[in-house]
Simulated assay, not measured.
Amino acid sequence: MSLRFFRILFCLILAGLLLPDPRPAEALPDQVRIPPDVVRTLGIETMVVSPGRGVRVIRTNGVVAMIDDRIRYVTPRSIHRLAIFGYVRRVYADTGDLVTRGQVLVTVFSPDYIEAQQEYLQSIRLERISDRSPSTRPFSPKIREAALARLKNLGVVDREIALLEKTGIVHKNLKIRSPISGYVLTKMAVSGQAINSGDRLFVIANLDWVRINAQVYQQDVPFLGLGQTMKVRLPDTGLTLSGRVIYISPVTDPKTRTVTVRGIFFNKPLRLRPGMFLPVRVLVPAGGTGLWIPKKAVFLAGGHPVVFLQEQKDLFRIRRVSVGASEGGLVPVTSGLHPGERLVVRNGFWVKAQFERGK
């Protein structure tokens, strides 16, 4: 015999031991009485029925992908478009490392950097001299601003510029920093190599937000809309994460007859890794409003769906209802139930056992 049979048998025996006669003289045939203390002991819970909007669940699969505008390519920027920008001195990050914005990734010996520093120092000296001559005074600030812009174009940060102004010491090695916080996906920089302006030294991606591309069959596409809830379940932990739909492709794949639906998910801490294949659910609000109740609140009695209502603290009534297809753990009730009635939504099998015992 199945485990379910023994579980039901145990519940019926326990109900018979705990509960008094369920059908006192004052109870009608479709009613039973259960003392309030027994209701608490058995964990029977109820809720007041109210109109609400149900959901339709579209189930499919999806692949985690990076967001394009959260990827950065770290490249040296030259001033004069020289054949060789410089030479890599030291590399401080490797593939897979988590780096922060402004963190030094590599130092490069760069003639452009040396020249830009010297020009900036000369512009400061010229500005001091020009203050004594009214004829040249208007031009000196513009010269200094141009020299400062060249330094910033190379990626020199403000504190390094302030140190250059204070000490007047020209440094040979340019520090190239990470433009964003994220993970190093690719590292091409190697100590000693010659690099040109525009060469990719690193590829860094911020994974705090990721997208999931799901494939939805064309018959389900009319129910989709931007902003709808998209859920994924992690296979290792069973954790469910929620996002929202941000894109629905206008094109159907001619081979699979599916449409790409893209959701965006917050991913901090890192749980969704690019390339993961996951089950996806899109929650589509059902049309119209009605009575939606938990699926576990509906039972079968005599081949018909029934629910149990609490009319008093110790009085429960059984009632036949008509229900639709369940979606997302909820079922729509089309007849037999009215707003404001108190419905048994947890451990209703105890109440059912009392009705069976009272027959």
Rank of each mutant, 00 (worst) to 15 (best):
Q122W: 00
E127I: 03
E160D: 15
A149C: 12
K142M: 11
L164Q: 03
L164M: 07
A194V: 10
A162E: 13
S181C: 05
G192C: 13
I129N: 11
M188A: 14
I169P: 00
L151F: 05
F139G: 00
R144N: 03
I176T: 01
K172D: 10
R128V: 08
I129D: 13
G182M: 03
V184I: 08
P138H: 08
E127S: 14
K175M: 11
F139P: 00
T186G: 00
Q122K: 05
A149N: 14
P138L: 06
D158R: 13
T167C: 03
K172G: 03
E165R: 14
K175T: 04
V170T: 14
E145C: 01
H171P: 00
I169R: 10
S178Y: 04
S123P: 14
S123Q: 09
S130M: 07
F139K: 08
I129Q: 15
A162L: 08
N173V: 06
L185N: 09
R132Q: 14
K187P: 05
T167G: 05
A149S: 15
P138N: 09
Y183T: 13
R125Y: 09
K166Q: 11
L185C: 03
Q122L: 12
R132W: 09
I195G: 06
S197R: 08
L164A: 05
R128P: 00
P179W: 05
L174W: 05
D158C: 02
V156Y: 00
R128A: 14
I161F: 04
A194F: 10
N173Y: 11
E145A: 14
V157I: 15
L151I: 05
R132G: 08
P141Q: 07
I176S: 01
I169F: 02
T136Q: 06
R150H: 13
G192K: 09
G168M: 06
R144F: 01
